[in-house]
């Protein structure tokens, strides 16, 4: 068991968004979090990272309670975020991104700067460029490399394929699989169901701030009626 979320509640000034989320992600496994727009997927990832304060419930990583901790403490405990929109630092070079993130966290496999540059060779040639000079695909690679260098046991990935060309999506998918095989637990929010099914072992559907359905990816794909009812899309 790695990440264990129970009855997690959080929201913003305007009101509660998550009304008691339960889910588990094991090391070396990936859970795809699906749901319509506004279901609370991004809020869930931000809450797990401590960037939105939980108002109730529990987040345990290998038994250690993280709900209510500061973001930097959560990161050092072994949770990393690849946020929606990548949020790389526009005035910081690729090399400096990697140096700043390097070995701040703990718990997971110790990635090195050379290791992540092997995983994302495109970044190596852009070492001296600052964030705003990178393409969308390169920014995504950098956001993933930054999260890996913190040494996470859990990675929260929010829409990694958003706005990327198909070749870059393939590269993201293969990198995510490498990360999972390295023993990291992955929680993936993704609109591209091909990518989600390609990397996730199981699927959880979030609706109105709670998990309403959780099954193996294979079972989810065998049951298109349920998928269509929950997501409003054909799978």
């Amino acid at each position: 068991m790695s990440l264990r979320v129970r009855d997690l509640r959080s929201g913003y000034r305007q009101g509660e968004v998550l009304h008691g989320v339960d889910l588990d992600v094991d090391r070396g496994r990936a859970l795809a979090l699906l749901g319509r727009n506004g279901a609370g997927k991004s809020t869930l990832l931000l809450t797990l990272m401590g960037l939105v304060r939980p108002t109730g419930g529990s987040v345990r990583l290998d038994g250690r309670e993280l709900a209510g901790a500061r973001t930097d403490q959560i990161a050092r405990a072994g949770v990393a975020l690849v946020p929606q929109g990548r949020r790389i630092w526009p005035t910081v070079t690729v090399r400096e991104h990697l140096v700043l993130a390097n070995r701040r966290g703990g718990g997971g496999r110790a990635w090195t700067i050379d290791g992540v540059l092997d995983l994302f060779p495109g970044l190596a040639v852009r070492r001296r460029h600052v964030g705003w000079q990178l393409s969308g695909g390169e920014q995504q690679m950098l956001a993933m490399a930054r999260s890996l260098l913190t040494g996470p046991s859990v990675i929260l990935l929010d829409e990694p394929s958003e706005g990327l060309a198909p070749a870059a999506v393939d590269q993201v998918a293969s990198a995510v699989r490498t990360v999972i095989d390295g023993g990291v637990a992955v929680l993936l929010v993704e609109h591209d169901l091909h990518l989600a099914f390609a990397v996730a072992d199981s699927v959880a559907v979030l609706a109105r701030g709670a998990v309403v359905h959780q099954v193996d990816t294979a079972a989810f794909r065998r049951d298109p009626d349920t998928a269509h009812r929950l997501l409003g899309v054909a799978t």
Partner: peptide, 24 residues
Amino acid sequence: TPLGALVRATVADRDMVAAVGIDA
């Protein structure tokens, strides 16, 4: 310098500085 990179990163997006484990 790396210290300056930390300052630039914090100016740009302090939440992501915290998210890599640095007490911003």
